[in-house]
Design a binder for these strands. Structure first.
Lengths: 213, 213
DNA sequence: GTCTATAGCGAGATAGAC
DNA sequence: GTCTATCTCGCTATAGAC
């Protein structure tokens, strides 16, 4: 097979995904991307139209499948109509994110980190063009959490979902900087399995704690 | 008193603090800052030397006092030599951060959000020039967590500190975007007291959960 | 200290040959 | 589809008058 060298669009997407994570959208120039991808500068505008459109393409390539994977997990767990445990519910999000993070080309891990960073930055392109992509995801998880934690009021439940997703996204972001608050020699924040082993008990305990009101 | 209009340096710092949060460092131009501050474009380079140096000055104005406040809280709680509860330990960090977030000029809240965002972005200027500022903070909290959670091994403890600080920083960051995962009408992520009311039980439960190994 | 004017650079985007 | 060459713009930074 001669597929060892992906086509130009794919090479641009792969490199852009990585550089947007490393330097941020604004600090990443098309010249950096095309140089590292080994393609011509004009190729970005030919294939994607603009730098903004390239950013959106990086997202649309992976976000849809990731969210669909989570919803498929929810469907499977809820099949019998029984109530989910919190841990089972958390795992329906963790498993697809973890699978993506283990993508052999490392692109998936880059994307999960990019998604987390872009959420924290509240980036205009995510707000403006991608919001309808996750509306079903939001609705499904809101209802699932309501059923799994019926003792909590709506406000308290909303806060806990906010904390849980914040934590999960940031854990998969794999930032080294927050490691300065811990002993850096023992924690490898980039190992997805270790993240899950320690993250899930923490999140489940936080979600399950009795109501504070 | 004629102090109603702060001097040029302060006005630049206040506006820069807010714009760096809203748009990020790279996407914020000196023209935006000086225009909104009502000062001349050249004033930034006269008073601070460069855009990079301005960013550092925004941090040095508030980071030292914030960390010193946390350490002072630790000193007070540890005064009797007794072991701290997890909740007491968490509150030694929450209280100074909360006080800063309630700064009447809103600058403190902006700074806490900027700190969180800059940590997540792993920004070069935070890595390169500010790391010695928080070394005492890191050492003190590492020892305090060891004493408060003696049943945990070093690795597991490190992970939990990582999660706890991630969550606390991101909560004070007050991002609206993660709210898309919850019902936005009930959650006001910018109200510091509400953050604490719901955040502290969640973090404490996560930290206190039995060892997973 | 504050201002105008501008140098010098790198960015995104595009025209047009091949 | 790919390339070179170039346009236009906004940026940081600075020189020098006041």
């Amino acid at each position: 097979m001669e597929a060892n060298r992906p086509d130009t669009s794919t090479r641009i997407l792969d490199v852009a995904e990585r550089l947007f994570v490393e330097h941020g959208f604004e600090a990443t120039s098309l010249r950096m991307i095309t140089q590292q991808a080994g393609v011509n500068l004009a190729a970005v505008n030919y294939h994607f139209g603009s730098k903004d459109a390239l950013f959106e393409s990086v997202f649309t390539r992976r976000l849809g499948p990731l969210l669909a994977g989570c919803i498929a997990e929810l469907d499977a767990e809820e099949a019998g109509g029984r109530a989910l445990s919190i841990e089972a519910l958390v795992m329906t999000f963790i498993r697809p994110a973890l699978a993506l993070s283990k993508d052999p080309n490392k692109g998936g891990a880059m994307f999960v980190r990019l998604l987390s960073r872009t959420l924290v930055e509240n980036h205009r392109l995510l707000r403006e063009t991608l919001s309808q992509q996750y509306s079903e995801f939001v609705q499904r998880y809101s209802r699932a959490f309501e059923r799994a934690l019926p003792a909590l009021g709506g406000e308290e439940l909303a806060w806990r979902m906010h904390f849980a997703f914040s934590l999960m996204f940031n854990a998969f972001a794999g930032n080294d900087v927050l490691k300065i608050f811990v002993r850096s020699q023992v924690v490898s924040a980039r190992d997805p399995d270790m993240i899950v082993k320690h993250l899930v008990p923490f999140v489940v305990a936080g979600l399950n704690t009795p109501s504070s009101s």
